[in-house]
Amino acid sequence: MRELELKYGCNPNQKPARIYMDEGELPITVLNGKPGYINFMDALNSWQLVKALKKATGLPAAASFKHVSPAGAALGTPLTEVEKQIYFADGFDTSPIACAYIKARGADRLCSYGDWAALSDVCDEATARFLAMEVSDGIIAPGYTDEALAILKTKKKGNYNVVQIDPNYEPAPIETRHIYGITFQQGYNNFEINESLLDNIVTENKELPEAARHDLLLALLTLKYTQSNSVCYVKNGQTIGVGAGQQSRIHCTRLAGSKADNWMLRQHPKVLGLQFVDNIRRPNRDNAIDVYISDEYEDVLAEGVWQETFKVKPEPLTREEKKAWIAQMHGVSVGSDAFFPFGDNVERARKSGVEYIAQPGGSIRDDNVIETCNKYGIVMAFTGMRLFHH
């Protein structure tokens, strides 16, 4: 099949809409549902990310995409008991690819609401059973077991979007797009991200453990397929904060850092001890946790809204408790798709436990950024490669 007609483009008024190949067959097959224009944009961007992650690390990889940027991405390493709790994966069988998706979605469960899922490996029953519980628009993978496909076909009243992609497909070396009737052309970004990018360590501290190298590769690859400007925080083989599409670098760093802080706060004993009403929907539980760890919760308590969500009135998580808990964060890695222009980005990243940084370098103030890293013993590598994605 060379062409697939779509209901409409980005918005309902944008008709006609289609995806097609100038030469050859489409490398995708729709196994269920009717994916739309934005669905396919998410599918193809997310597939490139997980395919590259698998190639770079040798581990199964998954991503959770929303609006052409990852809400989360992760490698298929085992879940800890705390991760099973905060990702609501207790009681699920977990294969490596299932662990990858559970962590990718768990990185930022609010942003992953209604996501597009991408898997580097064949979707198995364990992954499908977890995905069946979540609000999601669709999935792309190189294949599906019979059991997994049967489960996914029951989702969204039988309308869940399931796309299979040929894992051997390679895009043309030149890509084109049209904006306002004008054609743009550029070479496909086939730049390979691997550990050699981390060799140029410019700080006094040059100790970069293997786990941190994997995390930095994950950060850089995530940035390669994230709307720029972007900054990504990673820990233990999963993104914990992605700041995408911001106009200034410091706002990227703050946004991603605040998401990383929320990820940490979700592990606080008070959060793990919350008692929810019976049969609460998963999205409602996610929203309640987000409000609970925010500065707005005491206002909600005053309004008495807590009865709709909790069995007993939760004790507030004070600002002092939050600050003390976040201060325990350590071993976090950060990647930036372009250079840090000022040391303020390092200052903000440090507050969220960042100990390792990878960024292109090349700012006229590189010396200030390096000096700031040295002040805190942070390891920083200059990759020499910008990773803008638009």
Rank of each mutant, 00 (worst) to 15 (best):
Y376E: 08
L216A: 04
Q164C: 06
Y356V: 02
R254M: 09
T154L: 10
N279G: 01
I140N: 12
Y20W: 14
N190H: 11
P171V: 03
Q85L: 12
T29V: 12
D299R: 13
E175Q: 15
T383F: 00
L152Y: 04
N190T: 14
I357H: 08
T145K: 05
F388A: 09
Y297S: 08
P283V: 11
A256G: 15
I280M: 13
N368K: 14
N284E: 12
T222E: 02
E347N: 08
E192Q: 10
L26F: 06
S333V: 02
R365N: 15
E296K: 14
N287C: 06
V242M: 01
D278Y: 07
E192K: 11
P360T: 04
L110D: 12
D344S: 04
L6A: 11
H390N: 14
S196A: 09
D115T: 11
E210M: 08
G331V: 09
T203M: 09
A148S: 10
E25F: 05
S363W: 15
G257P: 02
A132K: 05
T383W: 00
V135S: 12
A126R: 01
F92E: 12
Y101Q: 01
K351D: 03
E175V: 15
N262S: 13
F40Y: 06
A219R: 13
R177A: 15
I182E: 14
K54D: 03
K7E: 14
N236D: 15
L26W: 08
S336H: 08
V346D: 08
G143P: 07
D124C: 06
W263E: 03
T203V: 12
A302H: 11
E321Y: 05
N229P: 02
G24N: 09
K51Q: 13
K153S: 06
L4I: 13
I364E: 14
D166N: 15
D108E: 14
P316W: 06
R109P: 10
A62S: 13
P142W: 08
E315A: 06
N45Y: 04
A74Q: 03
P269Q: 01
E170W: 00
R285P: 02
S228D: 08
V68R: 13
T145H: 05
Q275L: 09
G24Y: 09
R282Y: 14
T203I: 06
Q247E: 04
L75A: 00
I193M: 05
L110G: 12
D121A: 13
K235A: 07
E204Q: 07
G143V: 04
G384P: 01
